[in-house]
Computed example of a mutant assay.
Amino acid sequence: MSAVVAAPGTHATRFELVSHWHIAAPIDAVWAALKAAEQWPRWWRYVKRVDELRAGDADGLGAIRHFQWSSRLPYGVAFDVEVVEVHAPRLMRGRARGQLVGEGVWELIPEGDTTRVRYTWCVDLNHRWMRWIAPLAAPVFRWNHDGVMRAGAHGLAQHLDARLLDAY
C-alpha cells in the first residue's frame, strides 16, 4: 500500500504517497509506456484524458500535460504536470499544479528481464473541500490512491502483454 503521511512540519493537507510495481517487462518497454502519457487513458482506467499543452524535447523534458482523473470515490481531479527532470530510462520527475500541487517521480529499476517501478507523489491539496476534510479523510484518500495506482499497474502489465508480479 502507499504511505500517506503529513510531511514533518506541515499541515494535514500535504501528502506523500509511494507506490511500487514489479512488472515482467524490460525497462525500455515500461519507460516508453510511462513516457507516452497521452496514451494512458487506453490502459489506465482512472485516467480519463491527457492533453499535451506543450511539447518537450526528445526525452520529454519541458513537456506540460493536462491530466483529468476519475477515482474510486465519487470525485475526480484535474491538474497540469510539467516534466522537469528526465534520466531515461530510469527517472522522470514532474511538477503538478491545479487541484493538486506538488511533485511526482517515476523511478524504474531493471531486475533481470523485469522492471521495478516506484512512484512517489508528494502533493498539497488545492481543492477547498479536500483541504477541509483532509485531517479526517487521510485513510480514505490513501485507499483511493492505492486503488487508482493498482489499476495502473494492472493496466500497464496488460498493455505490455506482461505479468504483474507485485503492486502495492
Rank of each mutant, 00 (worst) to 15 (best):
1 M>F: 14
2 S>F: 08
3 A>D: 10
5 V>E: 13
9 G>M: 01
9 G>E: 12
9 G>Y: 00
9 G>H: 01
10 T>Q: 04
11 H>T: 01
12 A>N: 06
15 F>M: 09
19 S>W: 10
20 H>E: 13
22 H>K: 08
27 I>M: 10
29 A>M: 07
29 A>K: 11
34 L>P: 01
38 E>T: 15
39 Q>V: 04
39 Q>I: 11
45 R>W: 14
47 V>H: 12
52 E>H: 06
52 E>M: 05
55 A>S: 08
57 D>R: 01
65 R>G: 01
67 F>Q: 02
68 Q>W: 12
68 Q>G: 13
69 W>L: 13
72 R>L: 15
73 L>D: 00
73 L>A: 03
75 Y>M: 14
76 G>Y: 13
79 F>V: 04
82 E>I: 06
87 H>R: 13
90 R>P: 05
91 L>Q: 14
94 G>T: 05
96 A>I: 13
101 V>W: 05
104 G>M: 13
106 W>K: 06
106 W>M: 07
111 E>G: 07
114 T>C: 02
114 T>F: 06
116 R>S: 09
118 R>F: 09
119 Y>H: 06
120 T>M: 01
120 T>W: 08
124 D>M: 09
126 N>W: 04
128 R>N: 02
130 M>Q: 07
132 W>M: 12
134 A>S: 02
135 P>V: 03
137 A>M: 04
138 A>D: 01
140 V>D: 10
141 F>I: 00
142 R>W: 02
142 R>H: 09
143 W>R: 04
144 N>P: 05
148 V>S: 04
149 M>W: 12
149 M>Y: 14
155 G>E: 11
157 A>T: 05
157 A>W: 08
157 A>G: 04
158 Q>H: 14
162 A>N: 07
163 R>S: 13
163 R>V: 06
166 D>K: 04
166 D>I: 02
166 D>F: 08
